Computed example of a mutant assay.
Amino acid sequence: MAATSFISTANTSFQSLPSSSSSKHNVRRPCSVSVTLCKATSDSQESSPVLTKRNLAISLTTTLSLFSLSVASKGVLEAKAAILEADDDLELLEKVKKDRKKRLEQQEVIVSSEKERASLQSLIYKLSKVGQAIDNDDLKTASTVLGPSTNADWIKKVQAAFDKLSSTSEEEKEVTELNSSLASLIASVIANDIKSSKLAFVSSATALEKWTSLTGLTGQLKGL
Rank of each mutant, 00 (worst) to 15 (best):
T63K: 09
L165E: 08
V96F: 09
K98M: 07
T168P: 03
L104W: 11
D88A: 11
I7W: 04
A152N: 01
G216E: 02
A183D: 09
K102C: 04
N11H: 08
R100C: 02
T4W: 04
D89E: 10
E46N: 07
P148M: 02
Q220T: 09
A183V: 06
L120V: 12
D43R: 11
S184P: 05
I58Y: 09
L199N: 15
P30V: 03
A133G: 09
D153R: 11
Q15G: 09
L120S: 11
T218H: 02
L66W: 10
D43A: 14
L178M: 13
V109D: 03
S16G: 13
I194Q: 05
V189H: 01
S23T: 13
S149M: 08
K195W: 07
S128D: 05
S181V: 02
A3C: 13
A187N: 12
T62E: 05
E105Y: 00
R100V: 09
Q45H: 15
L123G: 02
D138M: 05
Q45T: 12
L64D: 14
A142K: 11
D89N: 10
P49H: 05
P49D: 05
A40N: 15
S47H: 09
N136A: 15
T168C: 07
T176V: 14
T218M: 04
S113R: 04
V111M: 01
G147H: 12
I124H: 09
L208Y: 00
S166L: 06
V175G: 04
L60C: 03
L123A: 08
A82L: 11
V96N: 14
K222I: 02
L92R: 08
S48Y: 10
I110A: 07
S13H: 03
L127P: 04
S184C: 03
S32W: 04
P148H: 04
I134K: 10
F162M: 11
W211G: 02
S44M: 14
K140A: 12
L90E: 13
L182Y: 04
C31I: 13
S167W: 14
V111I: 15
D43K: 08
A152C: 01
K80C: 14
T168Q: 06
Q106N: 01
S119H: 11
T144A: 14
L77C: 05
S42G: 04
L217V: 00
Y125H: 04
